[in-house]
Computed example of a mutant assay.
Amino acid sequence: MTRTTPARPISVEAVFPELAAHRGRTTRLHPRPGRPGMYDSHVGGPMLWPEDEPWPVCPEPHHPETEGYAPDAIRSARAAGAWPPSRPWPGAGTPGADGPVPFTGLAQFFRRDIPGLAAGPGGADLVQLFRCPRTHGPHLERRYHLRWRRAEETERAEAFLSAPPVIPLLRWEHELPEPCVLHLEEVDTYPWAEDDTLPAPLIVRIDAWDDAQEAEHGRGAPSYQGDLSIPPGWRVGGFPSWASTGPLDIGCESCTAPMRLLLTAGGDEMDADSHSWVPLEDRDPSSQGKASIRGGQSVAQPTRLRFGRDRDLHVFTCPADPVHPPQWILS
């Protein structure tokens, strides 16, 4: 099934013609619960992983835990619309006693499905995203991992891993991704308007326009950040949103080149300020606004994952040399 972003409530370039020079494109992934296969682009599905290749693990010491959630219990609870029961953590309170921990596979994307996906090292056209299911240090930091591949070469492997290593307990229920198929759609996007992301006089005008819209139409009025610039949810390319951190200069730690946004992993596909982006296919045409949205959690939080304070993970790569390490920004 296709997914179609509704026309923006206001033509942003009609209001601010100079934004045409800053227009970009992003591919909205529109994940929805389903049964993706290892040869598909997906969130939460089986990875295309040669059987003779070691699964990635996080070797760093992990924050000690007291209780957690078993993956099977999480799946059963989701099917029943309930919350899973927690269990005591084996060896609770012993730092680093568990040793290396297998990464959780979050998503994989093929460039043949998503032409806007930047190429990886050596022209790699398949990227796989992983996260350590445990936290690190007193601030409960996360560790992520990217694996780049040449899809055609990988698909010629003699055998593939039937299932990743079992992780007995997860710290939170939202560590386990819900298998989701993708419904790809390219849309126009515009930079976040703050600090030096756009010319200063233009940002002043955008802020004034937002204030005037709210004064005339109330808090539900369209806003630049919420309705006209950057869609919420999982997407490839385009511009990062900076809701909690403010704009950051992301330079490559190897060569100092400005890094580009590879992809954004979003915890929510909509929130109170961005429900205008929900696709037409997920709406009741007889209703208006937020009340028109159908599908419940399968539309609002389809992958069940969480990222950072505002639930967005931005993955940046170096355009000068994709071999250089990526950077992970939570915003």
Rank of each mutant, 00 (worst) to 15 (best):
L198M: 02
V204W: 01
L176C: 02
S254Q: 10
E178F: 08
E152I: 10
L169V: 00
D273L: 08
S229A: 11
Q225P: 00
P240D: 12
S276H: 14
A200G: 07
D195Q: 11
E185R: 05
R147V: 13
W209C: 05
H183G: 12
F160P: 00
V181C: 15
C132Y: 03
A243G: 13
I230G: 03
P165T: 01
D249F: 14
V181H: 14
S223G: 12
A157L: 06
E141F: 08
T189G: 07
P138A: 09
A221I: 00
V236E: 10
E141D: 12
P222Q: 03
E185I: 01
E175T: 15
M259G: 04
C255K: 15
W192T: 01
E185H: 01
P232Y: 13
L198C: 01
A257I: 02
H275N: 14
S276V: 00
A163L: 00
A212R: 01
R235G: 05
R260N: 12
E214G: 14
A193M: 03
H217N: 12
W234Y: 09
R219D: 14
H217E: 06
R219T: 15
D273G: 10
T197C: 13
R147Q: 10
S274H: 05
E194M: 09
F160T: 01
I206K: 10
L228S: 01
E155W: 05
T154N: 08
R131H: 01
A163T: 13
A243Q: 14
A243H: 11
T197W: 09
E214M: 15
E214F: 07
P168V: 04
S241M: 12
H174A: 13
H183Y: 13
R143Y: 15
A193W: 12
E186Q: 12
Y224I: 00
G251F: 11
H275I: 07
D273I: 05
T189A: 14
L248M: 15
S241D: 14
S274L: 12
T245D: 02
A265M: 09
V187C: 00
P222N: 05
A163V: 06
D211Y: 01
G237P: 02
R205I: 05
R147N: 02
V204R: 13
L169R: 02
T264E: 08
G218D: 03
L248N: 06
R142K: 12
R235D: 03
S162L: 07
P191K: 02
E186R: 05
C252V: 02
C255V: 06
W192G: 03
C255P: 10
M259V: 04
W209S: 03
P138V: 05
A272C: 13
W209A: 06
L161W: 06
